[in-house]
């Protein structure tokens, strides 16, 4: 499943799309950035409700395939700016983190 595949299937809104063809190889849910930075798998989708600029730094550090802001959260302007500058795919959904993770899991398993 690619990032674009997830966008179409879940579906997800797009704040910034860097590499639509990047494969998504798992996922991670978390809001405590110190926790996420050491544990989110590279190439995975990171589901969070955090929207500040440090999300971009953690996503870059962990090399996630995409960040999904759940629960209708929108990125703070500095986050969007940094995502564009650093080539981080930033997506969104009104779904809860749980519901989004369930759909993601179904799609990746399939």
């Amino acid at each position: 499943m690619t990032v674009q595949g997830l966008i179409d299937a879940i579906p997800l809104s797009v704040f910034h799309l860097d590499d639509p063809d990047r494969p998504v190889e798992g996922g991670y849910c978390g809001d405590l950035l110190s926790w996420v930075m050491g544990r989110a798998p590279a190439g995975g989708a990171w589901l969070t409700i955090m929207s500040n600029v440090n999300v971009a730094a953690v996503a870059a550090l962990a090399d996630t395939a995409c960040v999904v802001l759940a629960e209708g959260v929108t990125p703070d302007p500095p986050l969007l700016e940094k995502a564009r500058a650093q080539g981080i795919t930033l997506l969104g959904t009104d779904l809860s983190v749980y519901d989004c993770a369930v759909r993601l899991g179904g799609l990746i398993e399939a």
Binding site: L32, L33, S34, V36, G38, M50, N52
Partner: peptide
Amino acid sequence: DLGFGAGMGLPNMKKY
């Protein structure tokens, strides 16, 4: 509020 400051900095540095 920014997702840091949970007392994990130094323990994380030791862990990794």
